[in-house]
Structure formats: C-alpha cells, structure tokens
Design a protein around this nucleic acid. Structure first.
Lengths: 235, 235
DNA sequence: AATTTTTGTCATAAAATAATCACCTCTTAT
DNA sequence: ATAAGAGGTGATTATTTTATGACAAAAATT
C-alpha cells in the first residue's frame, strides 16, 4: 500500500487531498508544520511527500533539503504563486515536481501517480539475464525470451516472473505474490490458490520440464522462488 | 544514448553519480583531472559534462574555457562552497548550470535532465523511417508520410506516434502516453481510455488493417508499442 | 458567430485473461 | 508405508481488457 505524507497548514487542502487520495487507495498521513513533517518522515517513511512551500515554522524549502539529506523520497511541492522564481527554487532544492496553487486535486493525483510511476521505474532493473542467457527479460519492452524466442506471457504471469526474478532465491508466499498481482492491494480470501494456476501456466511456457523446474521452484509449505542463475551484464 | 562525462577527483562523487546516471540509462565516463577531461571530451564527444571546479591540475574554470573554445557542450559545474563569488565565476566562465557541494545526487540528475532538455541534445532524432521507407516521420516538418503520401495527423496522434516510434518495441502504458500528450497542455482532465480512441484514429490513418496492425501494436494489459522496423539512414 | 476539426466519453461486443473447482500427485512426518 | 496436508493440472466459468462506432464537448478556424 502506497503511503503519502501531505504537509500543509491549511485544513481544507488536507481534507480535499485526503478524499482524492483515498479513492486511489493510498494511505495518507498529515503534518501541518515542518517539524511535524520531519518527524513523520522518519517514523512512517512514506513513499511520497506532498509538501507546501509555505509553512508556519520551517519553510518547505528547508524541509525538502533536510529530507533529501537522509533519503530520496519523491517530493511534490505546492507553491503559492506561479512566479518563475518559485518554480526555480522549487526545483533547485530537490523536489521532483511541483504544483502551483490554486490547484485542482485531480491534477495533484495525476502528478503523484506520474511521479510514483517514474520513481518506481528507476528502481527497476531493465534487463535481466539468467542461465547463460537462456532466459532474458526486457522490462522496458515487457518481453521475455527463452533461447531467443519471445514468450507471450499474460500480465499476471509476467508480474509473477519479474517479481521473483528480481531477487533470485528469495521465497515469496502466495500472499506476497498475490499482492504484487493485485494493483490496488485488493485482497480476496480464496484467491491464493489461483497463484498455483498462474505458476502452472508460467511454467508451461518457461520450463522445459514442469516437473523439474529450472526457474520457478516450489518451496514446500512456503511458496515459490526463482532459481535461475544471474548472468553478467544486467543493466 | 546520452553520454555524460563526469570530471571530479573525489572517488565517492564519481561512484554516486555513476549509480544515479545509470538509472537514467546514461552512459557515463570519468576523468579525475583536467588534462584527462580535455582528452576525453575530444575522444568521446559527450553530450554533457559535469565538471568539478576544484581539480588537481588545471582548474575547472580553465577546463570550461578550453572546452568552450571548441564546442557548445553543455556544462554543469560542481562548486565546493556556495559563496556568491564561486557562483558568479561559475556562470561567468560559461557553464550552463551549477550545483553546490554537498549536493543530493538526485538534484544533479534533475539539473542534467533540465539542461539536456534545454539544449535539446536529448534524443532529438529528426528523421525516422520504418519498414523499408513505408512510413517516414519528419520531426522538423512534423510530417508523416505513408508510402509517400502525407498523412494529416492531429497533434495528439502525432505525439503518440512519435513517442512510440522513437523507441520501437518499448511498451508505453496509457498513463505514460497520457502524460506525453498533456506535457505542454495544462489539462488534467482525462481518462486513460481516451488513449484508446486516439490509437483507434491513428490506426485508421496509418494501418492497412487495423485488426492486424503493422505499427501500433497492443500489448494486452500493459499498453501499446511501436512495432515498425527501423530503416537505415535515420538522422 | 458559425463551421469545421479535434478531442473526450460512453455503450457495447469481442477478445483475452483470471479465478474457481474437482481431482490427482507429491512431500513430509509419523 | 501411510495418512494428511500441500501442490499440480485441466476444464469451466467469470471477469477484465480492448476495439470501435456514435455522439458530445471543446478548440480551432473561418
């Protein structure tokens, strides 16, 4: 679940954003001043911060700098006016994007989404290669090649593969995998076994012998893991 | 691929920047002193230089001047302190931007991006040609030809086409494409599904058979990609 | 202001994928 | 060796995603 910290001293803004963010299934927390904000950043480690430039104690600029010293949490600034100056300052101090007041809440939502998308992409490795280039994954092209042939994976199969392949050897419970598959973290009780089916289908496409898998290994009683051997030259 | 030369005698800085630049898919090369820097500028003709002011042999200032004699490669200076003096000197000698140490690597990335955008050295391909010159795009004239005939594409159709055509095979989510379309517009109304409609209209103009597209391919559950084959002689 | 062009929205059908179930096989612990 | 629980599989059903035409709204052009 995506956690977002909103820092602003105007109650109306907090309320409006709360309403909109909830629709997106984001967990939202608030701070009304800089000190509180810094504390919450530490305590809650949000995935993204929406930060007003004008705060009663420390300026948003300062908060931004202080946060940046510790982490790379993406920050969206709310600037009061749209003067050229504010813009430059907002960017200079290390915010990743900015929105000028007055804003439509929808715009903020779009920006947050875009920024989350961008930062998540940065974390992703784009090329993965295993077992002497037998299996290759291109995350930009969303393409999986086995012995040079492109496999047509369904979105869920692809998601399962890439989550596991990113950390070979790490064991994922069905619940873990389900969470990755479900976009908004909507979780249904009975669904866990459907992971089995996806694994089955994935194996059918990816494994030479499903009974003795080379890549998607079962960890009895625990879940699944990726068992491939990383090649060099992964970007 | 964007090539960036980083000139600094501190190893830590080189390492940190390398990590961040790689995430952006920039090719990075290093120099730890002025002489080396000048040599690499000549040999590798980077798209941008990140240059420390303080170097063991020639000063960054001098390097900057020498580079400027030969070319207009954008330069970002790293200055040790943020004294007014350094700032002025940094700008005066012809650097395009500067970052004061200590800096957040992200800040540098933002600056580099901004500067690349400004100098338009970023992936600015002007002519694209696909499938044996069946489809040609002239980005200067904003003209798309199919079998020699000019297609009248709407601005959005054109933007969609060119963003995808620039990186054939790369999959763009509807959100990605929406972002591209609205880049200079200020409208944040909009639903991801309207991309479908634009794609539909674009296909009507560009494809012989919309059901079996040659250029604009659907990637189920992911988005769209450009499937044309690049010809030679792209500028 | 009227007309044309472009963009966005919606409803629906078709395509593709995902979930569920029943039954079977395998693993583990006794 | 066997029982009990865990995992595998194929078939069926349900759901999601996409394509498209018709139309409304918004911009641009005249």
């Amino acid at each position: 679940m995506t956690k977002i910290l909103v820092v602003d001293d105007e109650k109306v803004i907090l309320e409006v954003l709360e309403a909109y963010f909830e629709k997106e299934n984001w967990k939202i927390s608030f701070a009304t001043n800089g000190i509180e904000a810094l504390k919450k950043v530490k305590d809650e480690s949000p995935d993204l911060i929406v930060l007003d430039l004008m705060l009663p104690d420390i300026s948003g600029e300062e908060v931004c700098k202080l946060v940046r010293k510790e982490s790379d949490i993406p920050i969206i600034m709310l600037t009061a006016k749209s003067t050229e100056d504010d813009l430059i300052n907002g960017i200079v101090i290390g915010a990743d994007d900015y929105v000028t007041k007055p804003f439509s809440p929808r715009e903020v939502v779009v920006r947050v989404k875009a920024l989350l998308r961008r930062t998540q992409k940065m974390e992703n490795v784009n090329q993965l290669s295993f077992n002497n280039h037998k299996l290759r994954i291109d995350h930009v092209k969303k393409e999986v090649k086995l012995n040079g042939d492109i496999l047509g994976l369904t979105p869920n199969e692809y998601k399962l593969l890439i989550t596991m392949a990113r950390y070979p050897g790490r064991v994922y419970s069905r619940a873990d995998l389900l969470e990755k598959i479900q976009e908004d973290g909507v979780y249904f009780e009975g669904y866990e076994r459907s992971i089995d089916t996806h694994i089955k289908n994935l194996r059918k496409k990816i494994e030479t012998d499903s009974r003795h898998p080379e890549f998607i290994m079962t960890v009895f009683g625990m879940g699944y893991k990726f068992g491939g051997e990383k090649d060099e030259s992964n970007t």
